[in-house]
């Protein structure tokens, strides 16, 4: 710190520590988060010479690209909805199911682990479980059920969905538990003493109160699955045409022979995950207002 020889009448300028402390983060965020994203978004609306065009977005409407989006959306919706339903049941059972007290912290810990166990190793785990030589496959064939003969294939829509469920279910448990904790036991008692049955309590009170959190969490799971690539890539190589794998191939080798089309694909992904996150936030605001 060098203090300038300022006129004695002026106080020495104070170092604005707050600004100094925040600046590195701001520079980082701009350079490595905001600019790269903006670059792609802008690029999606530019042609090779850099002038404005909607042609790139128009080119998304080709069968290969559309179907890759479609498969991605299907896998994400299926794994999000199934994960949300199963996860909500588990969370409810653990938080307010009247089970022994140790159940709840245990479920939360295991969920924390399982929700982070994704990527390439998860693909390996499911190959070892439901692959052609997998333990469950062999076990089922002992019972006379040859799932591969029945048309099951791990390297397919259902295979990927089942695999994604491994992190989607525990993620749901973690996200939705606070909302379930927010359900006061007095609400049930108040409803009961006013004459409501268990079903009427869920239909009129607990269901509507939990719905925004539940939908919000489902949207978050959707975005989570939609942007994932490592598990799918390790599981199926490039045999399953989901949008992240298409973009991966495009980045690696410009398989579409059109750089700006790559930007458009990325832009489309941002729009989809962005919208679902936006809805998630809106729903969360609504449920927090109720539960505060």
């Amino acid at each position: 710190m060098v203090s300038n020889a300022s006129p004695a009448s002026l106080p020495r300028p104070r170092v604005p520590w707050a600004v100094v402390g925040v600046t590195p983060f701001m520079i980082f965020a701009v350079l490595f988060l905001i600019l790269p994203t903006l670059f792609l978004v802008v690029g999606a609306f530019q042609d090779v010479s850099g002038s404005f065009t909607l042609a790139n977005l128009g080119k998304l409407w080709t069968p290969t690209i559309l179907s890759s989006y479609w498969i991605s959306i299907k896998v994400s919706v299926a794994s999000a909805v199934m994960g949300a339903v199963i996860g909500a049941f588990i969370a409810y059972a653990a938080v307010s199911g009247g089970l022994p007290r140790w159940i709840r912290p245990t479920v939360m810990t295991f969920s924390g682990v399982a929700s982070q166990f994704a990527g390439v190793p998860l693909a390996f785990a499911f190959l070892a479980t439901l692959g052609r030589q997998g333990l469950v496959t062999i076990f089922l064939s002992f019972l006379g059920l040859n799932i591969y003969a029945q048309g099951f294939n791990l390297l397919s829509f259902w295979g990927l969905t089942l695999t994604y469920l491994y992190f989607q279910i525990p993620l749901m448990v973690l996200i939705v538990s606070p909302a379930i904790e927010g359900i006061k036991k007095e609400w049930r008692e108040a409803a009961t003493i006013l004459g409501a049955s268990n079903w009427q309590y869920w239909r009129h009170i607990a269901g509507p109160v939990l719905l925004p959190s539940f939908l919000g969490a489902t949207l978050l799971l959707f975005a989570n699955a939609f942007g994932a690539i490592a598990t799918a890539y390790a599981l199926t190589g490039s045999s399953l045409n989901i949008v992240t794998i298409l973009l991966y191939a495009q980045i690696r080798g410009d398989v579409l022979h059109d750089q700006n089309l790559g930007y458009a694909i990325a832009f489309g992904m941002i729009v989809i995950t962005g919208l679902s996150n936006l809805c998630y936030i809106l729903l969360r605001v609504r449920s927090e207002r109720w539960l505060k």
Binding site: L33, F39, G227, I229
Partner: peptide, 27 residues
């Protein structure tokens, strides 16, 4: 600054990793 920071810190959940790295490679 908090709303802005909240937005920035949630951005990586909105923008998939593959999109961010794509941006890096171009930028």
């Amino acid at each position: 600054l908090r709303p802005f920071i909240e937005f920035v810190t949630l951005l990586p959940l909105v923008v998939p990793a593959i999109v961010i790295v794509f941006g890096y490679l171009r930028l």
